[in-house]
Nucleic acid binder design. Structure first.
Lengths: 155, 155
DNA sequence: GCGGAGTTGTTCGAAGTCGAACGACCGGCG
DNA sequence: CGCCGGTCGTTCGACTTCGAACAACTCCGC
């Protein structure tokens, strides 16, 4: 092991800030969604992806890929949503193994109810706290970070 | 509810990038620490805080405050670390209720073993992916975001 | 000194996440 | 056609996290 290149003060501040901010933002939005809409953040994202998809439906695997969660985790969350009637499962016409998750009308209404409050919260804790040029820098930097990790780890 | 101010393209890119990056970075580092040092990220942070503390020891509550985890979560992780001999519990001399978590010599060695690989991983996935000016912007912005949420939510 | 409000750390149950194992199925190649 | 590696979604068990409840204790005002 070579002599490790420790983080200098500015690097440490960026790293610690990133850690704390991502933790706190995630917790805050989780709480906001639960309180105002009765949804967890993974559940909200499932509804969003389905609403954007053709026929408001997606294969389970497609959903899991975009969603940064494991297949088993997705099964669990879709179970929850199905029991509440926000999502339905239909068998895939072109592949007997496949399962299509479909957004129901109720699911769409639930999403329409939840979205404004969620967006407002995202603005409140992140977007509206940043200047325009900071947003631009952040978007560019995170795109690079995400791309790098996507290539390195998978998917 | 007023008409919601949706996110424009740049804001959306920043938000999505932030979400994906924070998820992926957290997962990657979790995996790295487990594979190379047999530690979870919360456990690593506990060791770091104790190593920096006077007498290598802290009250449970102090530890929980700095650590952004609940008290019960801390109890759980300290149990794990204690069973592996990296941390010991001593009763607090000034408060019978209190418990001091103390970093053992073995804990210190484990931390010294783990730190270089961890820092290298942090550089690889975040710090070294960013330009100097990006690091500066990031540190400033996240400091503001963290401060805001600390004031709003608590602690 | 004393009583009550607040703290301290643990325990408990509920919830969520993951990976591995699984049965069922697809699809290409012989 | 028939087989066999790979894929699909679920199930299972282990792990982690959280908040609420709890007993023990401190500390402040009287």
């Amino acid at each position: 092991m070579d002599a490790p290149r420790w983080l200098d003060d500015r690097e440490m501040a960026a790293w610690q800030g990133f850690l704390e901010a991502s933790n706190r933002v995630a917790r805050h939005l989780e709480a906001q969604l639960r309180d105002e809409a009765g949804l967890s953040h993974p559940q909200y994202e499932i509804l969003v992806r389905l609403a954007e998809a053709p026929d408001r439906s997606l294969r389970m695997t497609e959903l899991a890929d975009g969603l940064l969660t494991s297949k088993s985790g997705l099964t669990y969350q879709v179970d929850r949503l199905e029991k509440r009637g926000l999502v339905a499962r239909r068998s895939c016409p072109t592949d007997v193994r496949g399962v299509l998750a479909v957004l129901t009308d109720e699911g769409l209404y639930a999403l329409r109810d939840a979205a404004p409050g969620h967006v407002a919260a995202v603005r409140e804790v992140l977007i509206d706290v940043l200047e325009d040029d900071e947003i631009a820098v952040l978007a560019g930097a995170f795109d690079r970070v995400g791309r790098r990790l996507r290539a390195h780890d998978g998917a």
